[in-house]
Design a protein around this nucleic acid. Sequence first.
DNA 1: GACGTTCATCGAACCGGTTCGACCTTGGAG
DNA 2: CTCCAAGGTCGAACCGGTTCGATGAACGTC
Lengths: 337, 337
Amino acid sequence: MNIGEIARRAGVSRSTVSYALSGKRPVSAATVRRINDVIAELGYRPNASARALAEGRTRTLGLVIPPASTRLTDVQLSFVASVVEAAAAHDHDVLLSPSGGDHDRSFDRVVTGRRVDGVILMEILLHDPRVERLTSTGLPFVTIGHVVDSAASWWVDVDYAGLISRCVRHLADLGHEQVVLINRSDELVASGYGPSMRATAGFLETAEGFGMTAHDVCCADDPAAGLACFEQIRARWPEVTAAVTINEAALPGVQRALHRAELDVPRDFSLTGVIADRLADDFHPPLTAADVPAGQMAQLAVDLLMEQINDPSATPRHALLAPPITLRSSTGARRRN
Amino acid sequence: MNIGEIARRAGVSRSTVSYALSGKRPVSAATVRRINDVIAELGYRPNASARALAEGRTRTLGLVIPPASTRLTDVQLSFVASVVEAAAAHDHDVLLSPSGGDHDRSFDRVVTGRRVDGVILMEILLHDPRVERLTSTGLPFVTIGHVVDSAASWWVDVDYAGLISRCVRHLADLGHEQVVLINRSDELVASGYGPSMRATAGFLETAEGFGMTAHDVCCADDPAAGLACFEQIRARWPEVTAAVTINEAALPGVQRALHRAELDVPRDFSLTGVIADRLADDFHPPLTAADVPAGQMAQLAVDLLMEQINDPSATPRHALLAPPITLRSSTGARRRN
DNA sequence: GACGTTCATCGAACCGGTTCGACCTTGGAG
DNA sequence: CTCCAAGGTCGAACCGGTTCGATGAACGTC
């Protein structure tokens, strides 16, 4: 069941079938109908590999995800799903490639084997070797998060610095004087993970601007670490009355630590940060926080990538998202004792 | 930079380059070295589309995931990541296709366009139209979960009936007389979702066998629903002293409901079920539960699929996993008042 | 009635690999 | 010395599409 067979049964040449399907040259209505009848009868679909070879494009996008060992967070998951859907809207499929550790065989295969027309790179580091690899191959790509030299590349990111800064300002307005930033894991921070770097910068700078005492700590991406981390914070800096975080996975542990310490939120302690709406709503009480709009980022990333694929000489564009901070119930005025 | 260019620079024919690379025919050591030098110098990688066309196989597996609208659960996510890694071990890539409704463009493209050599189907219904579609195309596939007529197909599943049955028996041994099953969402159950069906069957059957009073309820896959659901259970059946669940996403809500009702676990109430280890450990107190071994299932599914791809006439095989129930701290003897 | 257009279609080349059959060397056995 | 097998290489066909240039028929124009 290939195009030749369809042509034979419809009594036309292979090229006519091709033109009837693509509409790139006029074909008489009668012929089109005859061809369509045959196709419907045989349930024919063109072979994707052959088409890709002939056209020089695969209609497939690559999505580079962190390796399975690094447990994917909830937000990352919904990001993957959204990328797939956004790609489907452009009639493209998504090929997954885990990378980060040394699973770079897969990355190689996907990137250099011309298996995809473009790549979306998640979990970018400030200096990322994969970015250089991609740049040198000339394959269009968009990063989630941006590298230091960001002007010349395509990316989508959340303005962590700005958002965290606004969180701190919010806490300052409420009278808090000692605050802490609960960052992501040690390793991530050590490797120069962009969001962590920028969150820290925005945090320290703004806190200093308001004359606050600011501490920042790393915390692994799981509830147990969140609990331990929060108890350590209480022990080391008992005067801290508010926390800002970008570590969503640690939240359940923080919740438990607050409960265990019999701290009422927001009466005794305020908590805010950059947290996906869904998780912020699930907290008790719901968190005042800026959303991580994974769906919107995925959509944007795919749109940018398609733009780049369709016009490789286009000048790089990017998007820095700064979703509003939604006021919920987890921040309140500092109680003076 | 194609095979012809390599051949020209190495002073041999295209076929010799091909044989040197694949090793399917002997090539002299000197020639191989000359070819490899040229390849290394030019950074050549064979074009995947051309190879797929010629070989008739794409070295790509399709993974059909639930659409983004249905939020993917934590377990599903780690399953996806594990599938990608298992496939990478076989030198295969993974193409994602969201699907749920049955006139799915993406599913069509992947399945009928010969874009993949085989398919893994997640979130299977007891009667699933996609299974029929796949069967009729003759494309190898493995389902996660099994359809009613399961003998003739390839699948991997968790023995929900058996595991839930063992949970109930455990509760019976501890003296509980009124138990409830917290199932997944209404819609899923209504559509004939296999795990839900089998969990219910195992639950009711075993409870009856021990002369227990058994109730079962549906609960949407999110914390808020878990909270509402549990409070409703307490209101309707105040005598219930233990719950069994397969709904991992609802657990945080159940946790909050227990706390709000000032029920101590396991003194006042026992909780168990089929819950991924990671989530069971995060509960407070840690849950006595059977693991959902997503990684192992992914590995098995990929292995079975590869087996089927390499020998299409092989007789269908399947695996019904029954991980042990890990005793933690959430189940205890019923207190007699 | 000769002529230039437009429309519909065809044949052939091409994309970049794999694979088959054929050919030419060598070298060892008889 | 002849013959045959094995080793190494080549050219051509093929996988299933797309695309370009050419061809022929129908049509309106002068």
